[in-house]
Design a protein around this nucleic acid. Sequence first.
DNA 1: ACATTTTTAGGACAACGTCCAAATTTATTT
DNA 2: AAATAAATTTGGACGTTGTCCTAAAAATGT
Lengths: 205, 205
Amino acid sequence: MTTREIILNRALELFNLRGIENVGIRELATDLNIRPGNITYYFPKKEDILVELGKQLSELNSATIVKLENPSMTDFMERYRQVFNNHYEYRCLFLSFVSQMQQNKKLSENYGKVEKSRLEDFRKILNKLVEAGYLDTSVTEDDIEQLVSFLSLVARFWISESTVSYKKLSKKQAINHYLNLIGFVFSKHATIIGKKQINSFLSGL
Amino acid sequence: MTTREIILNRALELFNLRGIENVGIRELATDLNIRPGNITYYFPKKEDILVELGKQLSELNSATIVKLENPSMTDFMERYRQVFNNHYEYRCLFLSFVSQMQQNKKLSENYGKVEKSRLEDFRKILNKLVEAGYLDTSVTEDDIEQLVSFLSLVARFWISESTVSYKKLSKKQAINHYLNLIGFVFSKHATIIGKKQINSFLSGL
DNA sequence: ACATTTTTAGGACAACGTCCAAATTTATTT
DNA sequence: AAATAAATTTGGACGTTGTCCTAAAAATGT
């Protein structure tokens, strides 16, 4: 492992553990038994570490969100379960979501691009779920926009809320909580078979 | 206006404008043409300013959320519109929600108490909406829990998301967006008359 | 008028992100 | 193998931050 990778790995660990703002370059350096200026050599600004971690998360999600030909309702839920797991591994980014997006221009740019295409993907998936008879045909384009809005809100902030309000919950419990919420909202727009898949997915958590 | 009040008012303005973390005690002092130590006299720690602002928001919300005997679906939506307006006036708190809750013990305590009773209120309101025939009788206690979960997620993070993703939207537009989302979710659990009220409320925005 | 309390001022401290020049190690070329 | 070049590491510096502390000033009460 290169020095650069060592720094990135340990930074992610410490950031997840104690928050990005609460872990200084000096502390990270001490922890790694190197000098602060050495970190600065690989990452001139602290921001640059987070840009890299953001890319890692993005790639991780790209790897899990493989495009399916004929997605089922189960596939859809399972996909979100995996995305949530990925998010958790990089939870420090979400816990400082707003401040990072405001301060870190590059991270913000990267996230903006990825998220845009990601939402587009989910829009398509939802349309396919309608075509395939998992979501009601009464679901309009406008409804799909609302569902996508809902999904993006949950995806962005579930970690923040669970950290603040559901501290006692384990990772799995927290993820299940928000999967249940998604299932709850979606089942109201699902067909009978769609509802069945949601319920069996949720009860299998 | 006392020095203390002057500090609080201007602090809220600057915090809303540029973010809590980006406005230092020295800058606030310079802006007010007083000395930093003077602010420290009234608020020994920066945190203490935010504790006070948190109380102000809490009182503002308590004033707008008057308990209704027979709430209609319209009342419910109107209530949220007002809460969102209040939130916007204190948006700095929500934009630094997680970090404040983690660092600011007192603010966290206060928020915890208020939010707990607030959620309890909304639980009761939803039950009343069922009784009064605005929400389906098929709505179970479990459904109400999910709806409350949904509401609290939106309430906590709508400002964060709109700041990051919907920068161009005006205050009113942003609020309308999330009211629409709430209406969208709730209309699926509403009776015919409930749906009517939601739709007429949303179209009147 | 004096004495006491409240308020203001201004300088100090450690920690932070960042920067830079020198020293050291590693790689490349002769 | 020696000399040169490049990459890496070091250690100290700068300005800014929140916080703290002591003394001066103003306001208040007796």
